[in-house]
Computed example of a mutant assay.
Amino acid sequence: MAETRRRGEALEAAIVEAVWAELAESGYAGLTVGAVAERARTSKAVLYRRWPNRAALVIAALAHHAPSVEDVPDTGNLRDDLLALLRTVVAGVSVRSIDALWGLLAETARDPELAALVRAKLDELQRAGPAVVVIERAVRRGEVDAARVTPRLLRLAPDLLRGELLLYGEITDAAIVEIVDDVVLPLAGV
């Protein structure tokens, strides 16, 4: 019996899982669109209709494996929500995600057009991401003045985590507490 053709979410899930598996096996440098297509049992044309290049595929896989809004508990206060969020993010960090971030960084340094695409995609993901939900909860609870909520504040914790990971190869719990207590909360006026 012939396999039914996958579409929509089923096809996309197969593709991002194929990217994730290729990252584990070949790393960012060895990842090719052809290998992803073969592993996902689809064609390169199908991939290129949705993602313009391998960087976009990798971003999709990283986003798929990142914590979702549902993964972040509502503890009742901003500090504890942020700590829970950042600890959840760190728990999901793997060698392949570090390699993927380094690969993206290197590739975007050489290609300004790709850099713009990566920044736009990261901004899009962060606008609806868990950090936004955590800050919005704090605004609704009256902990944070909505006027203090800027795009920089919403990006700050994830950006600092990425920087810590790329510079030091790990994110300690002490670093998480410092990011929250010494940077994000003061900027939020808490």
Results as ranks from 00 to 15, higher is better:
residue 2 A to N: 11
residue 3 E to T: 08
residue 5 R to C: 02
residue 6 R to E: 10
residue 8 G to V: 00
residue 9 E to D: 08
residue 10 A to C: 05
residue 16 V to T: 13
residue 16 V to K: 13
residue 16 V to R: 15
residue 16 V to N: 15
residue 18 A to V: 08
residue 18 A to N: 12
residue 20 W to G: 10
residue 23 L to P: 04
residue 23 L to W: 04
residue 24 A to F: 12
residue 25 E to T: 08
residue 25 E to R: 12
residue 26 S to R: 14
residue 27 G to Y: 09
residue 28 Y to H: 06
residue 28 Y to F: 05
residue 29 A to R: 12
residue 30 G to Q: 15
residue 30 G to V: 08
residue 33 V to W: 15
residue 36 V to E: 13
residue 37 A to D: 12
residue 39 R to A: 09
residue 41 R to D: 14
residue 41 R to P: 07
residue 43 S to M: 09
residue 43 S to P: 07
residue 45 A to E: 13
residue 45 A to N: 13
residue 46 V to P: 10
residue 48 Y to R: 11
residue 50 R to F: 00
residue 50 R to E: 10
residue 51 W to D: 12
residue 52 P to F: 03
residue 53 N to T: 05
residue 53 N to M: 10
residue 55 A to Q: 11
residue 55 A to D: 13
residue 56 A to Q: 08
residue 57 L to V: 03
residue 58 V to P: 14
residue 58 V to C: 13
residue 58 V to H: 12
residue 59 I to A: 15
residue 62 L to A: 07
residue 63 A to E: 13
residue 63 A to N: 15
residue 64 H to L: 09
residue 66 A to F: 05
residue 68 S to L: 13
residue 68 S to D: 14
residue 69 V to F: 07
residue 75 T to F: 02
residue 76 G to K: 08
residue 77 N to K: 05
residue 78 L to S: 09
residue 79 R to L: 02
residue 80 D to T: 02
residue 85 L to V: 05
residue 89 V to P: 10
residue 89 V to C: 12
residue 89 V to H: 11
residue 91 A to H: 07
residue 92 G to S: 07
residue 94 S to D: 09
residue 95 V to D: 15
residue 95 V to Q: 14
residue 96 R to Y: 05
residue 97 S to E: 12
residue 99 D to Y: 01
residue 103 G to K: 06
residue 103 G to Y: 04
residue 104 L to P: 01
residue 105 L to A: 14
residue 109 A to S: 09
residue 110 R to F: 01
residue 110 R to Y: 04
residue 111 D to R: 03
residue 111 D to F: 01
residue 111 D to P: 04
residue 111 D to C: 03
residue 111 D to L: 03
residue 115 A to L: 04
residue 116 A to V: 02
residue 118 V to A: 09
residue 118 V to N: 12
residue 121 K to W: 04
residue 121 K to V: 03
residue 126 Q to K: 06
residue 127 R to K: 07
residue 127 R to N: 07
residue 129 G to F: 01
residue 131 A to E: 15
residue 132 V to G: 14
residue 133 V to A: 15
residue 136 E to P: 00
residue 138 A to R: 08
residue 140 R to T: 04
residue 142 G to V: 00
residue 142 G to C: 03
residue 142 G to S: 06
residue 142 G to D: 08
residue 143 E to V: 00
residue 145 D to Y: 00
residue 145 D to M: 02
residue 147 A to R: 10
residue 149 V to G: 10
residue 150 T to I: 02
residue 151 P to C: 02
residue 153 L to G: 05
residue 154 L to E: 13
residue 159 D to C: 03
residue 160 L to S: 06
residue 161 L to E: 11
residue 163 G to R: 06
residue 169 G to I: 01
residue 169 G to W: 00
residue 170 E to Y: 03
residue 171 I to E: 14
residue 171 I to D: 12
residue 171 I to M: 08
residue 172 T to W: 01
residue 172 T to R: 06
residue 172 T to C: 02
residue 175 A to P: 01
residue 175 A to F: 01
residue 176 I to C: 07
residue 177 V to W: 05
residue 177 V to G: 07
residue 178 E to R: 13
residue 178 E to K: 15
residue 179 I to T: 09
residue 180 V to C: 10
residue 184 V to H: 12
residue 185 L to P: 07
residue 185 L to W: 04
residue 189 G to M: 09
